[in-house]
Design a protein around this nucleic acid. Sequence first.
DNA 1: AGTTTGTTTTGAGTAGTTCAAAACAAACGG
DNA 2: CCGTTTGTTTTGAACTACTCAAAACAAACT
Lengths: 138, 138
Amino acid sequence: MIRASGLKVTAPRVAVLRTLQQLPHSSAERVFDGVKDELSSTSPQAVYGILAAFTGAGLVRRFDPPGSPALFECRVGDNHHHLVCIRCATVRDVDCVIGEAPCLQPSDDAGFTVFAAEVTFNGLCGQCRTAASTDDDS
Amino acid sequence: MIRASGLKVTAPRVAVLRTLQQLPHSSAERVFDGVKDELSSTSPQAVYGILAAFTGAGLVRRFDPPGSPALFECRVGDNHHHLVCIRCATVRDVDCVIGEAPCLQPSDDAGFTVFAAEVTFNGLCGQCRTAASTDDDS
DNA sequence: AGTTTGTTTTGAGTAGTTCAAAACAAACGG
DNA sequence: CCGTTTGTTTTGAACTACTCAAAACAAACT
């Protein structure tokens, strides 16, 4: 599966992929923590390199929530979107809003060739909504 | 106009707003450069502070393109989207894809209260498309 | 003009990420 | 199975964009 993307199969790479399957929407640091458990000799920089290689090969998708470190996930190919809690930074996947590839075509592309659309919904998750309203009461 | 938002009117703030009107989609550093031209005593930190204050007051909108510094623009209120060139990082505004507030409601909100949707189209601008195909020929 | 309150300067510090060179290991050929 | 090549990982350092805190300062109200 890694090999199918034209990349060499190494222990750290397998570990990164497995960690990412277990914990989607993980930051580079969290992936590193997960990898360390099974391969203690791995360096953080290796994880950065591996994630960059995987992203370039289309094996993982990178997602940059504003104000937080970049997140990575294996779910790739479908153009799904993300729901981000502005309070606790939790991320949830959401399927396309309308049909297959919804926002993939802007109304006026201004001469651009559009490859992908990144849609991020900002909101409050259930937990944080109740927590926030409790704060307001005080 | 600044005063209407409950903020004190100061020279640096006026300069930031004017710079942002002249050069939309500017990074904090570029705003700082523009402000320096008329107010040389202004510090970069002041610009960061002012932009944060304006963003909080809803006077300017902040936009975080992946891999680039944050950009700021005055156009606010309408939920317009952005077209980003993945090669030269140029940004163009695009109006909503469908109707008024298009992607503002995800198909399944997973218990979130959604406030806003950030839509970013990744692509190649006209210039970079020709430049890229020329590179490929070599 | 004086006081208050919020703003800006000054200076330092941080997180997240990237770069470069050397050590190393997977994959292929013999 | 061993050597060579090529790509990967380690090690170490650096960098960008941004944030924090305290003191100096200026706008706004009286």
